[in-house]
Structure formats: structure tokens, C-alpha cells
């Protein structure tokens, strides 16, 4: 039982990271029906910037929590700037282009960001300074570390803040209006371009936070780390119903738990014919199954005719 609980904790932590990244995908998609495939690279950039700041401050006598916070404070604006520039340069001119065009620019942007990061931060995997002391808490035989608690809490907080933003502020109303019908929103006096820019900026900020989390949790950052994470988070967003905030959160956490349980139990259940080597397969099979029975994701309501 303690093993099962431990797997749930593992899955929750991993899922929280997926969820925050998935939120970035889903917000952008919700507003302009665009899959920002370069979103994963923003996570990588966040981790890299934080690495530099944390590395520079690690020798000082500041408390570790402050150092990590400084890393976040540096990473968030940096990623926001890149996110903003990305939308202006690569996506805005293509708003009325064929659907696949922005997808290709996203791939181009991904390649560029990765290699710029390679030039700046070298190609070696960067080891985050191990400044946060390992604190273990025991819950019914399972272990949860301080960092894991911080990750889960942060992601819940971010989710709550984002919900407030979208449903309780004027800007949120503008965002929802734009997502419903950009033309009409424009007629109502909403500056659509500003709203879309803002959405990208918020998404990039979330990605930066996720980057710092991943970096401090696993203790490693690498210029190519964004693509796999981005792919998983994108699956999470689709699983929950892309364009839906709660869906992204649910999808992320579900995907995390499915991966953990899949790796943990399928081997024993199938007499080791299938094992943890098929971990990613379980995640995708669950995804495919959900989509086949609910083609627009778990919480997605819009089954519009989008080709």
C-alpha cells in the first residue's frame, strides 16, 4: 500500500508539472486555435535562465528559498519577452494563413530557440546547484519531499490565479470574448491583438515557472529538454480537452498518474511481458482511448467543425 501511495505521489508531482505546461498550450489554443509547438522550448529557457541566476547566487549566504525565488523572478520576465516576440514575429502575420503554416513556423522557432540556448549555455547537461536541503515527510510509509510539496502547491496556486484572471477580471472577459468570436469582440471595442499578446505572455510566464520547477526537482537542465516535456504536456492538454483550463489541469495530473502507475504495475500484471519500457505507450493508449470515446477530450465541450 505504501508503494501504491508513493506512486500516486510520484504521479501527482510529475502531473503538476505537465499541468502547468499544458495550461500554456491550452490558453493559446483556446483563444486562437493555434498549437504553439514551441511552448516546450519556453520551459527549457526558463530552466536555463534560472540555472544561471541560481548558479550565480548559490555561493552567497542567501537562504535557498530566496535564491530559487530569484531564479523564478529572472526566468519569468525573460520567457514572457520571448513569448511575446514569438507571437509578434511568427504567429500574428499568419493568423489567416492555412492551418499548418503556423505549425511549421513553430517548429522553426523551436529549432532556433534550442540552438540559441545551446550557444549561450553550452551543450552539456547543466547540473543545478544542489542548494535545497532534502526534507522528507512520511505519509503512511510513503515519502514526499519538500520540493514535491512546493511543486504541487505552486501548480494549484497558479491554476487558481489563472481561473480568477479569466473569470473575474475585465481582461479575462476580453479573453473569453476573443476566443468566442474575434470579429465581434473587436467590434465591441476589445483590442484583440493586445489580448492575444497577453495570452502568450501569461502562457510563457507559466512555462518559466514550470522550467524552474523541473530544474530544481530533477537537478538537471539541457538545451533539448523542452521537446519531450512539451509533447507530454500537449498530450495532457488534449486529454483534458484543449482550450479548457480545468481540462489542462486534469489532463496533466491524470497523465502523470497514468505514467507512474503504468510503469509501476503493468509489469507485474502482465507477468513482465510488458514492463516499464512501455511507459509512454500506456500514456498514449489512454489518450487514444479517451479521444476515441470522447473525441474532444475529457472536459472539452466544443466539438466544432474544425478541419
Amino acid at each position: 500500500m505504501d508503494i501504491f501511495l508513493q506512486q500516486i505521489i510520484n504521479g501527482l508531482t510529475l502531473g503538476s508539472v505537465y499541468a502547468i505546461v499544458a495550461l500554456g498550450y491550452t490558453m493559446v489554443y483556446g483563444i486562437i486555435q493555434l498549437i504553439n509547438f514551441a511552448h516546450g522550448e519556453l520551459v527549457m529557457l526558463g530552466a536555463m535562465v534560472a540555472f544561471s541566476v541560481i548558479g550565480a547566487l548559490a555561493g552567497t549566504s542567501l537562504p535557498p528559498v530566496l535564491i530559487v525565488l530569484a531564479g523564478v523572478l529572472a526566468a519569468v520576465p525573460a520567457c514572457m519577452l520571448v513569448g511575446f516576440a514569438m507571437e509578434r514575429i511568427a504567429y500574428r502575420p499568419l493568423r489567416n494563413a492555412p492551418r499548418l503554416a503556423p505549425l511549421i513556423t513553430a517548429i522553426g522557432i523551436s529549432i532556433i530557440l534550442q540552438h540559441v540556448a545551446l550557444l549561450v549555455w553550452s551543450r552539456s547537461p547543466l547540473a543545478f546547484p544542489q542548494i535545497i536541503p532534502l526534507v522528507r515527510y512520511y505519509i503512511g510509509g510513503a515519502i514526499i519531499t519538500g520540493v514535491q510539496i512546493a511543486i504541487i502547491l505552486t501548480s494549484v496556486l497558479m491554476m487558481a490565479a489563472l481561473t480568477l484572471l479569466v473569470y473575474r477580471t475585465k481582461l479575462g472577459i476580453a479573453m473569453r470574448a476573443t476566443s468566442q468570436n474575434p470579429q465581434v469582440a473587436g467590434l465591441m471595442g476589445i483590442d484583440i491583438n493586445r489580448v492575444i499578446s497577453f495570452t502568450f505572455i501569461v502562457g510563457a510566464g507559466l512555462a518559466a515557472v514550470a522550467g524552474v520547477m523541473v530544474g530544481t526537482y530533477y537537478g538537471i537542465a539541457h538545451y533539448s529538454m523542452g521537446s519531450l516535456l512539451g509533447m507530454k504536456a500537449f498530450s495532457a492538454a488534449v486529454l483534458g480537452g484543449i482550450g479548457n483550463l480545468a481540462g489542462a489541469m486534469l489532463g496533466g495530473i491524470l497523465l502523470g498518474i497514468v505514467e507512474a502507475l503504468g510503469a509501476g504495475y503493468i509489469g507485474d500484471l502482465t507477468n513482465n511481458v510488458f514492463g516499464s519500457n512501455y511507459q509512454d505507450v500506456f500514456a498514449f493508449i489512454v489518450l487514444i482511448a479517451v479521444l476515441v470515446f470522447r473525441p474532444s477530450g475529457l472536459l472539452g465541450e466544443r466539438v466544432g467543425d474544425r478541419a
Binding site: I3, I220, A260, G262, A263, G267, S276
Partner: peptide, 10 residues
């Protein structure tokens, strides 16, 4: 892979 926790827990 960055997350080995599931495997290690097993």
C-alpha cells in the same frame, strides 16, 4: 528520461 521515480518506487 528525467523522472525515474515510478520505476524506482516499484
Amino acid at each position: 528520461t528525467a523522472d525515474f521515480k515510478a520505476i524506482l518506487t516499484k
